[in-house]
């Protein structure tokens, strides 16, 4: 499916879908409450079959944390970006998807490690790259490290 077709079929299925411009991919913005249902449908629906989660990350926009899921269908080779805005900047929380994509496990742990986003129902939510006793979440924009030197 080309991007236009994909957009059409998405709007047909979800009339109130919010699209975001400014990227080569189709970006859809989903609320945290129905995110889990939506992404499960995207994965399982025969017309879309987004079975390959090739990137999972988070962006700190200071007012919110935006979870970014890049999806690809191995059968149709169409791609989609799902975004979820987490507005509670002090205690961001989202449901895990690592039961849908096993590979999401490590990526979610990385996001937890770097941004402090809590993934509910994650089986093994620990820091992955940093030490267990590290304080703070380095990729947050308000992270201050006393040892950091401006070059």
């Amino acid at each position: 499916m080309s991007n236009e077709e994909l957009k059409l079929s998405l709007t047909a299925h979800y009339p109130e879908m919010v699209f975001e411009e400014g990227s080569e991919y189709i970006n859809i913005v989903v609320g945290p409450s129905n995110f889990r249902n939506c992404i499960e449908q995207l994965r399982n629906e025969a017309a879309w079959k987004f079975d390959h989660l090739f990137c999972l990350t988070c962006v700190d926009w200071k007012t919110n944390f935006t979870m970014v899921y890049h999806l690809l269908s191995c059968t149709f080779k169409h791609q989609l970006v799902v975004k979820v805005k987490l507005t509670d900047v002090n205690n961001p929380e989202i449901e895990t998807i690592c039961d849908l994509w096993k590979g999401a496990n490590f990526h979610e742990r990385e996001v937890y490690d770097m941004f402090g986003v809590k993934f509910t129902n994650h089986p093994d939510l620990r820091r992955i790259l940093l030490d267990e006793d590290w304080s703070g979440y380095p990729l947050r924009k308000n992270y201050v490290d006393v040892n950091m030197i401006e070059i």
């Binding site: 090739f54 990137c55 990350t57 970014v68 096993k102 590979g103 490590f106 990526h107």
Partner: peptide, 12 residues
């Protein structure tokens, strides 16, 4: 964000 191949490959 760098989506590095080994990170995902290792998880398998």
């Amino acid at each position: 964000k760098y989506r590095s191949p080994n990170f995902s490959n290792l998880s398998a």
